[in-house]
């Protein structure tokens, strides 16, 4: 998965879209990451579909998603725009 842009859905309101770097005991390491907070408005699905169609708006150069927060990981390329 290294170098592949993925969608990381968490058990909470946050969704991340970024390039998968690695995974270790601290969590999933992502690069050039877009962040969506459903608690701030807008649906997770809309955000993911928009990212698939228009690309990832990278807000963070790197980020670690704690392992226990990760609900699902999938390739952004597998999302229908």
């Amino acid at each position: 998965m290294h170098g592949i842009t993925v969608v990381v859905e968490t058990r909470g309101a946050l969704t991340y879209v970024g390039r998968f770097d690695t995974e270790d005991e601290s969590g999933v390491h992502l690069l050039n990451v877009g962040v969506h907070d459903a608690a701030a408005g807008g649906s997770r699905d809309d955000y993911v579909h928009r990212s698939a169609k228009f690309g990832v708006r990278a807000e963070r150069p790197r980020l670690v998603v704690p392992r226990q927060d990760v609900l699902r990981i999938r390739k952004l390329a597998d999302v229908e725009p």
């Binding site: 170098g3 592949i4 842009t5 698939a52 952004l76 390329a77």
Partner: peptide, 8 residues
């Protein structure tokens, strides 16, 4: 997009 190229 790049994400449609990666790994293919």
């Amino acid at each position: 997009h790049r994400h449609q190229i990666e790994g293919r």
